[in-house]
Design a protein around this nucleic acid. Sequence first.
DNA 1: CCCGGAACCTGAAGGC
DNA 2: TGCCTTCAGGTTCCGG
Length: 275
Amino acid sequence: MVSGVEMPELPEVETIKRELSVNLPGREILDVAIGDERPLRGIPPEEFRRRLIGQRFEDISRSGKYLIFHLSGGEKLVVHLRMTGALLLNPKNPKFARIVFKLDDGGCLVFSDVRRFGAMYLVKNEQEVVGGLGVEPLSEKFTPEKLASLLAGRRAPIKAVLLDQSFIAGIGNMYADEALFLAGIHPMTPAGKLSKGQIKRLHRAIQRTLIRAIESGGASVSTYRRPSGDIGTAHFDFKVAHRGGKPCPKCKAAVQRIKIRNRSSYYCPNCQRLR
DNA sequence: CCCGGAACCTGAAGGC
DNA sequence: TGCCTTCAGGTTCCGG
C-alpha cells in the first residue's frame, strides 16, 4: 500500500535545485551520453549533444515542477522529472540512467528515470516550456484574494483544481492531500463553493505544507532521490497522504481513500467534512 | 470554456 | 513457484 510516495512535486524539485546549485554552476559539459531518446522533446539527439557540449552550467532556477539550467551560451536546459525521474551528481552505480552529462571535473550529472516519462527541452527562452504555468504558491503573488479569484465559479472538486498546473504551479497529489487536511476541507468540495474562511485556511495550509516539506528535503520512499542519492524525510510528517486505513493524527478516525480524476485521494472523514 | 477519463510507461505487489 | 492483474500519478490529449 505504500508503493508510490515519491513523485517529485515542488518541494522535491526545489530541493534538487538547491543541492545542485552548490557544485554544478561553473562546470563545463564535455560530452552527453544519450541512452534513451524519449526524454528529448523537440530535438534530435545529435543536435542536443552538439548544442550542449562546451557549454557551462550557470544558475539553476525552478518554475512549478520544472528545473531550468541556465547555460553559458544563453540557452536553457529545462527538465521535468514527471513520475520517477532523478538528477544524480556523481552517482556510484546509477540505475535506469537515460542521459549522462560528463563534466570537466571528472564527474557527471545523471538523469535516471525508471518509467521514462521525464522530459528535457533545450530552448532559448524557458517561457516556451513553462509559459503556461499558473501562480507560484510561495511567491508574494499568491495571496488569499488571488486564490479566491481563481476558485470562483468552478464546479470541479477542489482537489482536482489544486492539481491543475495552469492554476497553481507545483502542487501534486500528495501535497494537495496534506494541504486539504491541514485546512480541514473535503477533497470533493466544489472549488467555487469554498467559504472565505476556508479559502484563507487553504491558502495558509498550502504554503505551510510546501515550506515544511522543503525544510525536510522533500518526501521519498522509493525512487525520489536528492542529487547526492540521499532520501528526503518529508513523508514522515504526512498526516493522510498514502495513509489509507491508518488513524487520523487528530481524531483517530480511519483515513479514507477515494478516487478523484483517477487519482487516489486520502482524507479524514471526520476532520474533512463535505459541505 | 469547463470537466472527466484514457494513455503514456515499468516495476512492485497482491491474488490464485 | 509463477503467471496474471492491478496500482502508482504528472502531463497531454480527446470527447462530451
